[in-house]
Simulated scan of single mutants.
Amino acid sequence: MAATIRFVRTRSLLKDEQIHTTGFAMEFALAIVLAVLIVVASIPLLVSAL
Rank of each mutant, 00 (worst) to 15 (best):
M1Q: 08
A2N: 14
T4F: 08
T4M: 07
I5V: 12
I5C: 05
V8K: 15
R9D: 04
R9H: 07
T10W: 06
T10N: 12
R11A: 13
R11E: 05
S12F: 09
S12P: 03
S12I: 01
D16Y: 07
D16A: 08
Q18A: 12
Q18K: 12
Q18M: 10
Q18Y: 14
T21H: 11
T22F: 13
G23P: 11
G23K: 14
F24A: 08
F24W: 10
F24P: 06
F24T: 11
F24Y: 12
A25S: 12
A25L: 15
M26L: 13
M26D: 06
M26G: 10
F28P: 08
L30Y: 13
L30A: 10
L30P: 11
V33I: 13
L34D: 00
L34E: 00
A35T: 15
A35W: 05
V36Q: 05
V36T: 14
L37I: 11
L37H: 04
I38L: 05
V40D: 01
A41I: 08
A41S: 09
S42H: 07
P44G: 02
L45K: 13
L45S: 06
L46N: 01
L46I: 05
L46Y: 05
V47C: 00
V47E: 00
V47Q: 02
S48M: 00
L50W: 09
L50V: 10
